[in-house]
Design a protein around this nucleic acid. Structure first.
Lengths: 350, 350
DNA sequence: GCCCCATTTGTAAGCGCTTACATTTAGAAT
DNA sequence: ATTCTAAATGTAAGCGCTTACAAATGGGGC
């Protein structure tokens, strides 16, 4: 505490003003709204800025301008490739617009998430990216009260009056399930991420149920196992599901990671995919193409979502534009892990 | 610009002071150094803070205290699971200490990286996390000039006088290669990430060479293909390597992602792993356990690294402690993809 | 009851910037 | 020339907080 080094004698706006022979206001304007300054003056100021290696003090600027040019992102975890992708894109767009990104992860815990959101706001975030629409209304009130623009990603329709950039989880899952039913599957099981506090996971399960119902099947007959987001958990869940008799002919998974675990378990149980059992995923991350057989899954445009979220947020903050609701398209990627039940591949495995 | 909503009438320190019947200094102290305030006063102040839902203004605080409690992390990309893991851990430790994380990615481009570093500093980062030690010395000068603590992760010995939390990439790769040589491998090929501006990648290749040399083999005879970080690239590189005659009996990969691609290519070429060709990875991400056969690789404690990096950085900033150099242990994870070289396959790929 | 010192509290000076408002300057129109 | 207007620049008032320093308070020890 005592030894704090002099952080120190960095040039200030005033130093630049003095050196350039203008007022601080002119320097400030040259930096922030160049077109309010004459060409000649601006040149001179900028040259001085460079000569002095001046860099504006962030705190002072934030204090005076009431804006930080910093945006927060609160996501469940960076270790999930889908969020990592989205974040990367979000950040790129931010940087391209001269802004920076604050990140925090909640580990899927609503209490932690709330805390992180408050911290971001206290840190002066001009806007904030949130995943999924489901959370304590009090948080939305808090955000509204402070006039902080929010964009919700990964979920389609969000809270009204809030921007969102997402897709229809339920419709996507329904479509995939319908496709499987069309192929002849009747006994379908589902491995889902925990649905509590997770509207995306819940919607995906609901989508499968809806397809069943539409096909005149009993949706409540579909076994659903909820588990954590990890390969190991997908594996365990699959083993559990295969204890049933008769066995399901298709195991749908709420995401690709769980599906990878399921695939793994299938191999260990000596089950051929898709001959003995079909497996589907959701998200279409790289993993889906690496496992054997390659995974039939739903492609979600994560990068696009992250990039668009940033744009929407920036527009709200900078141009005071209205909240927007953007719904992105998803599509089924047919690979090898889903086929008609009992399907014999022309070339035997191994 | 014009319509900016009133961000507005949030309570200030002064409001709290007035309401609690004390001076602003006392409120500030209650918040920042509670033990300088009497128990009774503090209680009263805190109650008022809660009642008014007061939250300190970030800019003002940063301006007055010359500290933001914000730390920057500049990484190549969040889409790489190893960095995502490290970052997640880094962030967790930061949050546990009341700090927040600013993130930027450089896409492995030194110019972008430099830019991001400068931006972070301009944003008032109190300290900064960097990946790998190799960069323009000018950047280090800049950082030193501003007295910004830096911690370098992922590389063992870094720039002197800078903290680093890493591991010995070269030794780890050497050990793995030595193990393979002990198994009987003589023709080894290497698929590496681009080594330009990437000391980690370079060290890994160097490690393999060192093992060859130590075994009396010619290190320059080892084919090395450099490529981008992606499964597809690993696949292409592997195919390329298999054109050689005689074929290598072992393809070492600079990371697990490349190895996954190689594995994929091996299957496509009808090559059995490890009978026809062994494959090794590096990093030990989850992917390594999903592919068939499971990957023999080097385990790197990414999370630990990220967490420690945060601790080192915090210590430097808060306690003004000296720079530390921490070297973490790695170890070989033996799975199925590496075995003694089998007979030379005569069946050609199509 | 008095003195001294440690503890607690208050006073007020900035921190470095933005911006409303005032002033000056320079063209254009007459 | 003169007047008017728009563009360019300057002045200076904060923004909300921290902290050096000063002042007040409260116990012991005598």
């Amino acid at each position: 505490m005592e030894l704090k080094p002099p952080k120190s004698d960095l040039p200030t706006l005033e130093d630049v003003a003095r050196a350039a022979g203008v007022s601080t206001a002119t320097v400030s304007r040259s930096l922030n709204s160049p077109d309010q300054v004459s060409e000649r003056t601006r040149q001179r100021v900028m040259a001085t800025v460079r000569a002095l290696r001046y860099s504006p003090n962030f705190g002072a600027r934030a204090l005076a301008a009431k804006r930080t040019n910093t945006y927060g992102a609160v996501i469940p975890t960076m270790e999930n490739a889908i969020f990592a992708r989205g974040l990367e894109a979000f950040q790129k767009v931010l940087v391209a617009n001269g802004a920076t990104m604050l990140v925090a992860s909640s580990s899927y815990d609503p209490a932690i998430e709330e805390d992180q959101i408050r911290t971001m706001i206290a840190r002066g975030a001009d806007g904030i990216l949130l995943i999924g629409a489901e959370r304590d209304p009090e948080i939305y009130d808090f955000l509204k009260e402070r006039h902080i623009p929010v964009v919700i990603a990964w979920s389609g329709t969000g809270v009204s009056a809030l921007s969102c950039v997402g897709f229809d989880n339920q419709a996507a899952a329904r479509e995939l399930a319908a496709r499987a039913i069309g192929l002849g599957h009747r006994r379908i099981a589902f491995i889902s991420a925990y649905t509590e506090n997770n509207d995306r996971a819940r919607d995906r399960v609901a989508g499968a149920r809806a397809a069943l119902e539409a096909a005149g099947l009993d949706p409540s007959a579909m076994p659903v196992l909820e588990t954590k987001y990890s390969i190991q958990c997908g594996r365990d869940a699959f083993v559990e599901l295969m204890r049933e008799s008769p066995r399901p002919t298709l195991v749908m998974c709420g995401n690709d990671v769980l599906a990878a675990g399921a695939m793994r378990a299938a191999h260990e149980l000596g089950l051929k995919v898709p001959a003995d059992v079909s497996i589907t995923g959701f998200d279409d991350i790289e993993l889906a193409t690496v496992i054997q057989p390659a995974l039939t899954t739903v492609h979600v445009p994560h990068r696009q979502m992250g990039g668009l979220a940033a744009e929407v947020l920036l527009a709200q903050v900078r141009d005071n534009s209205a909240a927007q609701q953007v719904n992105l398209e998803t599509y089924i990627v047919e690979r090898a892990s889903l086929a008609a039940p009992g399907f014999q591949p022309t070339v035997a495995a191994e």
